[in-house]
Every structure is written in structure tokens, then in C-alpha cells.
Amino acid sequence: MELRTKAEILDQVGIRRALTRIAHEIIERNKGVTNVALIGIRRRGVPLSIRLAERIKQIEGIEVPVGFLDITLYRDDLTRLDYHPHIYRTEVNFSVTDKIIVLVDDVIYTGRTVRAAMDAIMDLGRPKAIQLAALIDRGHRELPIRADYIGKNVPTSKKEIISLRIKEIDGEDSVLIQEPLRE
């Protein structure tokens, strides 16, 4: 599928500023981070959660626990796929019970990934609360879910594609809005 780039929504500096603001918001909302842990949703939530933890450390001087979650086994569309999604490792090496868990994902769209992630976390223990941070909110929710911390709201049409590239995985930081050249 050939894609036409319509606009760059965030560049490297934009992503950095958005994450810095989200870090501040997490600290403010939770009155510090003593009981906070971050869990990045694979794949691009992982580097974002690591960067957020670094930002929080710079501001508060506290290292918050960071974990990574693969939600494949919790997806609601597994029987409808025509391929086998790769299952990555889940690495949550701390107890989630009684902690405030901030889920970190790159783009929030239908909300189905977040639903799966919440179920996966509940199977690891009983957190005090689960909050959600997303770098991009592109709308079109299919479930009653909203993000607590948003890098940027981007109204999109369903046929548009948000192409989010992260240095640790894709070699550069950028968020583009694209659409197919032909219908």
C-alpha cells in the first residue's frame, strides 16, 4: 500500500516536550511517585515508558519501577486474524498489587489494546489504580476508555494512518499522519 504523508504531527523535539509534560502531570496528579510504576505496552510503549521513567527521575530524583507487557494472549480478535501475532515476553519484575500503575502506549485508538492490557495487569495482581498515558490520541474509541495523560490529540479519519516512529525501534523520532494514495 503506497502512502502519502499529509503532515508531521510531532518531530523529535515535539516528542521530547510531550513526554516531559506527561512526566510532570504524572507526578502532579499522584502527588509524587513513591507508589507509582510504569508499564509499557509492547512494542512502542516500551521505549516510551523507559523515557518517561528517566524524565521522572530527572524531576523527582526517584527511580520508578518499569515493566513491559505483551497483550497478544488477551486480544479479542485472535480468532479473526489470518496470521499468528508474535508473542513477546512480558517483563514485570515487581508486584503490581497496591501500586498506581501508569500504562504507557504510543497511540490510543479503539481502546481495545488498553482493555486487553488492563485484563493482563489484573492477572498479575490487584493494583490500587490503573492510569493511561498515550503519546497520541487519535479518537474513534470503540470502548468506554480514555487516557489520563495525552501527548497530543489528533483528530483523524479512520482511513488515515498514524505512523509513529521511535528511535529505539525505528531509528528516528517522528509522528506522521498518512493516507493511502488510492482508495
Partner: peptide, 23 residues
């Protein structure tokens, strides 16, 4: 190898307190 690779995350589930996923 695909089967062996997929068994790695499955083994993690066996070490959890709640050994169940809804897949």
C-alpha cells in the same frame, strides 16, 4: 522454531500467581 519461540512466553504464564490467560 516458531513453536519453540512461542513456548517461551507461555512458560512465563506458568510462573505467575494466576496461571490463566483468556486466549
Amino acid at each position: 522454531n516458531t513453536i519453540l519461540d512461542n513456548a517461551v512466553p507461555m512458560k512465563q504464564i506458568l510462573n505467575r500467581e494466576i496461571k490463566k490467560v483468556p486466549t
